[in-house]
Write a protein that binds this DNA or RNA. Structure first.
Length: 257
DNA sequence: ATGGTAGCGCTGCTA
């Protein structure tokens, strides 16, 4: 089973690239983030033509998460389990069950500046995700949390830790919040397979960062132990970050036996 | 030390 995650940074702009990528990468499940679409504008037909069922949670111009699957798509749920009916939330979390695997597509808030209210909201969001799995999920079952965490878990996931010191994505509280998810029973599958530093999934559009190799590994697939043990291969597909109109993120693929 | 780009949508916000 091949599971992938990709922050597409506008599905409207990226649809041709996503279609092309699906045709050669052929994931069984693709989690997308930052579709920037309302549900009514989600191109479900384009994906069904390629053999994928889909679910989308979007609010329009910001955020937006989706799950595509060609191995079944059941029990779709948007948002947190402790979310009140009337609570208005951003479109950052979508769940579905695909071939017996509980899948989450997540887009963690960026945080903007350390210490800002947005940064506090980011930490609170990650803590709420931890509470969600703690209270409603079972670490002995097959579950993956896929998406843009907006956190580089360790210094080896950062092109220049000294230069970025004091900024978001690498601060200790953010890393601790991701570590708390791992402590519940999740494994960073890419890192489990490949220990090397200098492998990234996001590069700033500005200043030629992609071509200069200045990136961060912030797109992750976290899997429960029984599933993580079956991971055989993973790839951050830098080819998809090239060419015309690329996203600022590359897709991450993981194969489970 | 700073600013650099991209997307949305029409003004500046978000990343």
């Amino acid at each position: 089973m091949r599971i992938a995650t990709w922050n597409v940074n506008s599905l409207k702009v990226r649809l041709p690239k996503v279609e092309e990528w699906l045709a050669y990468a052929r994931p069984d499940v693709l989690c997308m983030q930052e579709t920037k679409l309302a549900d009514s504008a989600f191109p479900a037909l384009a994906f069904s033509a390629l053999g994928y069922e889909s679910a989308h949670c979007g609010e329009g111009r910001w955020n937006g998460v989706a799950i595509l699957s060609r191995v079944g798509l059941e029990d779709v749920m948007a948002g947190f389990s402790d979310q009140a009916e009337e609570e208005s939330t951003e479109a950052r979390l979508l769940w579905a069950t695909c071939a017996g695997v509980r899948v989450a597509s997540i887009y963690v808030p960026n945080g903007r500046q350390v210490g800002s209210e947005h940064y506090e909201a980011k930490l609170a969001w990650l803590n709420r995700l931890r509470r969600h799995v703690e209270t409603g999920c079972d670490p002995t079952e097959n579950l993956v949390i896929c998406g843009d965490f907006n956190v580089a878990p360790e210094d080896r996931d950062v092109w220049d830790p000294a230069k970025l010191h004091g900024g978001t994505h690498i601060s200790a509280p953010e890393r601790e919040a991701v570590a708390a998810l791992r402590d519940w029973g999740l494994s960073d599958v890419f890192r489990q397979l490949y220990p090397e530093s200098g492998i990234y999934s996001w590069w700033d559009y500005r200043a030629g960062d992609f071509h200069q190799g200045r990136g961060l590994r912030i797109d992750l697939v976290l899997a429960t132990k029984p599933l993580a043990e079956r991971a055989t291969w993973a790839l951050i597909d830098r080819q998809a970050r090239k060419g015309k109109l690329p996203s600022d993120h590359a897709p991450l693929l993981v194969d489970f036996q």
